[in-house]
Nucleic acid binder design. Structure first.
Length: 423
DNA sequence: TCTGGGGTCCTAGGACCC
DNA sequence: TCTGGGGTCCTAGGACCC
């Protein structure tokens, strides 16, 4: 009996979502941009071949986009989130032990695999997801999560595998790991990708065979774990259950920088409201709130970045309290004359609503009243959308301007934007 | 002109205690 | 000349992930 992990990863997920509803885009170069139309966050294979890296600023590639007629979309998270659910629901037909790792990836574990046609099983999953949702996926299989990840990378890179590869009992494993760059190993990021090659570690195989003391010294326990996993020793279990976040961040970049305190106040009030909603959604309260503002990090002159933290008397998820303290913090760090490009709110010291430490100034009855009020607010906004009822501090007009030029329709979540089929 | 928005975990160092 | 030896807790920052 052997443990086997599968990783199902959607190919170029956001681009693939767009293609489901615009089949003519198949085999054409397509990219999807970040929130503010600033960066490229999803690229079709054709765009990858042009050498556009993940997270690239769009303005650097204007000429390329024009030259190759690349189709460009603004992000449409409503659509992608819904497509993601469809993919995950499909996977649940195959296992009741699914870890949804991100919007476009899921692990699952076969506990009693006794050998046999792992790759055939993978292909069945792949074709089913494709048929039911229209989304192409790649599948990596390994005896640890890190090996499943590596298999997935290899399956994507080498056409011979047609999107499915198992490294379980695979005699070519070392040979394949030697073809995987060290930076493509799960757990090796930008910093290690640069610092490890000078020591002769250039591929996944090099890392697998590196001496323990060296890894421990250079990379700490996380590095040790990665190396053990490459050797087939499972250190990272499947992680499921309701995820209760330990920090909640809401922040945005502005297309046109904000300069006035009053504009920033509205923005911050809005982010606090959003963050508090997320907090209540997971049944939590926050002990601390941090407000930060910053000018463009790409402009050296007049760079300014600051933050201020408040610890609440007792943990809360009550929007008015949180906005009041956030705005006070904002006033403390606001410096006139700066071009603010980004602002945000970070909630920490998060705990469950069930065991709030009450105190003299936060008697039980007040607290219950606040919770009921917030529950009604959430219900109304959930039903009628967005900011049907909102704090006056957020202002009436939109704050700043965001670029949303080429957003596709919410085909699957809005009645008014359903697909129209002509016969 | 123009550079995303979330999260996690670990570690080093300072403050403080006896 | 030379400045204890532990602990714990907190925070900032660095590494990673998507």
């Amino acid at each position: 009996m052997k443990k086997v992990y599968l990783l199902v990863d959607c190919n170029n997920f956001f681009v693939s979502c767009e293609r489901v509803f615009k089949p003519a885009l198949k085999n054409k170069p397509v990219m999807v941009l970040s929130n503010n139309d600033g960066c490229v966050i999803s690229r079709s294979n054709e765009v990858k071949k042009f050498g556009v890296p993940m997270g690239a600023p769009v303005f650097k590639y204007r000429d390329l986009i024009k030259k190759y007629n690349i189709r460009v979309f603004s992000t449409n998270f409503t659509l992608y989130g819904d497509m993601s659910n469809r993919v995950m629901e499909t996977l649940e037909y195959f296992t009741d032990d699914l870890e949804i790792y991100s919007v476009d990836e899921a692990f699952f574990k076969l506990n009693q695999w006794t050998g046999g046609h792992l790759e055939n099983y993978g292909r069945l999953i792949k074709t089913t997801v494709q048929k039911w949702t229209g989304i192409p996926v790649s599948i990596g299989i390994g005896s640890t999560k890190t090996l499943a990840k590596a298999a997935n990378e290899l399956a994507k890179k080498h056409e011979e595998f047609s999107g499915v590869l198992s490294l379980v009992n695979n005699s070519r494993t070392d040979q394949l790991l030697a073809q995987l760059a060290i930076g493509d190993v799960w757990g090796i990021g930008r910093a290690y990708r640069q610092s490890l090659p000078p020591y002769g570690l250039k591929t996944a195989l090099d890392l697998k065979n590196a001496p323990d003391f060296f890894i421990k010294e250079k990379m700490g326990v996380m590095g040790e774990r990665t190396v053990l996993e490459l050797r087939g020793v499972s250190c990272v279990e499947l992680d499921h259950g309701p995820t209760v976040r330990k920090t909640i961040l809401t922040s945005r970049s502005f297309r046109d920088p904000l300069t006035s305190l009053s504009q920033l106040k509205k923005a911050i009030a809005k982010y606090v409201s959003r963050a508090a909603e997320k907090l209540r959604e997971q049944g939590s309260v926050a002990g601390s709130l941090n407000v930060f503002i910053t000018t463009s990090r790409f402009k050296k002159d007049n760079y300014y970045s600051n933050s201020a933290n408040t610890k609440f008397l007792s943990p809360t998820s009550y929007t008015p309290t949180m906005i009041a303290s956030a705005l006070k913090n904002l006033e403390k760090i606001f410096k006139p004359g700066c071009l603010y490009k980004r602002a945000g709110v970070l909630l920490t010291d998060i705990s469950s609503t069930d065991n709030i430490q009450l105190n003299f100034f936060n008697p039980y009855s007040e607290n219950k009243k606040q919770q009921r009020l917030m529950a009604s607010l959430d219900e109304i906004n959930d039903r009628w959308g967005g900011d049907t009822v909102k704090s006056a501090a957020m202002g009436v007009n939109r704050i700043g301007r965001y670029n949303v030029l080429k957003k596709s329709a919410s085909y699957t979540t809005k009645w008014l934007e359903l697909m129209v089929v002509q016969i």
